[in-house]
Amino acid sequence: MKDFKDYTLYYSPYCPFCVRVLNAFKGLDIEISMKDTGDSANKKELVNGGGKATVPCLKHPDGTWQYESLDIIDFVKKKL
C-alpha cells in the first residue's frame, strides 16, 4: 500500500466524481486521509482552506488545494 497520509481527500460518498477518485485510489492501493464533507466541520475546513465546497478536493502537505477528479488521479499516479 502506498502511503499518502500527508495528503487529505475531501469527498462526498454521493458524488460520482469522488467515487471515481476513491475507486482509482483503491485500484492503485493508495492509503490516504479522508474527510467526508457531509460532516459540517469538514465542509467548513474545505471552504475555509480551499475557497469553495467543491469535491473531490485533495489538500497537499504544502497547504495547496487541488480540485478536479481526473487531475487528482493523474497527480497521484505521477507520485507513485
Rank of each mutant, 00 (worst) to 15 (best):
N23E: 09
F17K: 11
E31M: 07
N42E: 02
T8W: 01
G49R: 14
K79V: 04
K44R: 10
P56A: 10
N23Q: 08
F25H: 15
L70E: 14
V76L: 14
D74W: 00
C15T: 12
P56S: 06
E45Q: 14
V47K: 13
K35A: 15
I73R: 00
K44E: 02
V47Q: 10
Y14N: 13
N48T: 15
E31N: 13
T54N: 11
M34A: 13
P13I: 02
D29I: 01
T64M: 10
Y7G: 01
L46F: 08
F25R: 15
V21L: 07
L9K: 10
K26L: 08
T8G: 03
K79N: 02
D71A: 13
D36Y: 08
D3P: 09
Y11C: 01
D74Y: 04
G27H: 01
G49W: 11
D71K: 14
F17E: 10
K44D: 01
L9F: 04
D36W: 11
N23K: 08
L28Q: 13
D74I: 01
C57F: 12
E45Y: 05
S12E: 02
V76W: 12
V19Q: 13
D3G: 10
Y7V: 07
N23D: 08
A41H: 04
D71E: 14
E68D: 15
K26A: 14
G50I: 04
K52M: 11
Y67R: 07
V19G: 07
A53P: 01
E45S: 15
G50T: 09
K77W: 05
S40N: 02
K5Q: 13
K5D: 11
Y7R: 04
G51Y: 07
A53C: 00
D39N: 13
I32P: 01
T37P: 00
C15M: 03
L9H: 06
K2R: 14
I30K: 15
L22W: 02
L58A: 05
E31V: 13
G38C: 02
D29A: 03
T54Y: 05
H60T: 14
I73G: 00
T54I: 06
Q66D: 05
D62T: 08
P13M: 06
P13W: 03
G63C: 07
M34V: 09
D3L: 08
K52I: 05
C15N: 12
K44C: 00
G63S: 07
T64P: 00
V76E: 13
K44G: 01
P16L: 05
A41F: 01
L46A: 06
K5R: 15
D74R: 12
I32E: 06
K35D: 13
F17S: 08
Y7T: 03
T8P: 03
S33I: 06
L80K: 12
S33T: 14
C15S: 15
N48E: 15
K35L: 13
F17M: 01
L80D: 15
N42G: 02
L58K: 10
E31I: 04
K35V: 09
C57A: 11
I73A: 03
G51N: 06
L70R: 03
D71V: 12
D62W: 00
K2G: 01
P16Y: 07
F4S: 12
F4E: 09
D62N: 15
S69W: 03
C18M: 03
Y67D: 03
A53M: 06
K59W: 03
C18H: 09
I72N: 04
Y7H: 11
F25E: 14
D6M: 02
I73C: 05
V47C: 06
L22D: 15
